[in-house]
Amino acid sequence: MSAAAPLLEARALSLHAAGRCLVRALDWQVQPGERWCVIGRNAAGKSTLLRALAGLGVPERQGEVHWLGRPQTAWAAADAAWARAYAPQHLVDRFPLSVQRLLALSTVRPGRLTMEQALVQLDVAHLAQRGVMQLSGGERQRIALAQCALQGAPLMLMDEPVSFQDPAHQARIAQWFSGLVSADGSAALVASAHDVNWILRAATHVLALHGDGGWSAGGCAQMISAPVLERVYGCAWREAGGVWVAV
């Protein structure tokens, strides 16, 4: 990897599913220190895009994805865990491991934070000895975020990381993202989300999927605006007292 290589780069990436074009010719980079949120309507392709960026199977794709300056296809499976971590929206646990054991098994490159730090920061320290199959949806989701961070990869991909969280934990995770990525300036994060106001707290940049294959990308100040949100969601938006509302 050269010193100037982005952590993630999509080159003319196109994705199709069920006869629809989800993403057309995506040319996009993620640099160290950036926190991106992917927005779009339901079925716009957010989860499919994150799977493609993580190197997982998708219905149909063209173009290239690079991690740390190398084509995704050039990474051996074992080495891919060194480059990127992925937290899916839905998890299926097949073994009755304890939370502590699961997190220990998830660590590939120790150093960004300790298990104890992750447990405290995500408000799950009291669950360390509990079996993962005994957790609520929100608890399991926060454990998945801890797994993603503890893997130690510089590129972290998370699909709907606050979909099961109450407002207090949503705020906590937004703050955690900022510390997680800015701690040493070498990591970056890409997450999908729907809540525009949460995105303003959690992200530095936004990638918008328009639903017809089109896309746009830029800083939060540029992207969280009435014209962009109306194009993405198909409804009017207004800002009231610093809060964005669909109308």
Rank of each mutant, 00 (worst) to 15 (best):
S2E: 11
A17E: 12
A18K: 11
L22D: 03
R24D: 14
A25M: 06
P32T: 09
W36Q: 07
V38L: 15
V38Y: 05
G40L: 00
G40I: 00
G40H: 02
R41C: 10
R41F: 08
R41E: 11
S47R: 02
A52C: 03
A54G: 02
G55I: 05
R61Y: 10
Q62D: 12
L68I: 09
R70T: 11
T73C: 12
A74T: 12
A76E: 15
A76P: 10
A77V: 14
A77T: 13
A77W: 13
D79L: 12
D79I: 05
D79C: 14
A81K: 13
W82L: 15
A85Y: 06
A87M: 15
Q89R: 14
Q89G: 14
D93I: 06
R94S: 15
P96C: 04
R101E: 15
V108L: 14
P110M: 04
L113K: 10
A125N: 08
A128Y: 00
R130F: 06
G131H: 13
M133L: 12
Q134E: 14
R140S: 13
A146Y: 05
A146Q: 01
M156N: 09
M156R: 15
S163W: 03
A168W: 10
A168M: 12
Q170F: 02
A174V: 04
W176N: 01
L180N: 05
L180P: 03
V181H: 01
S182F: 09
A187M: 11
A188M: 02
L189I: 09
S192F: 03
H194E: 10
W198C: 04
I199Y: 05
I199R: 05
L207Q: 01
A208S: 08
D212A: 11
G213P: 05
G214A: 09
W215S: 01
M223R: 12
S225I: 03
P227D: 02
Y233F: 15
A240C: 11
V243H: 11
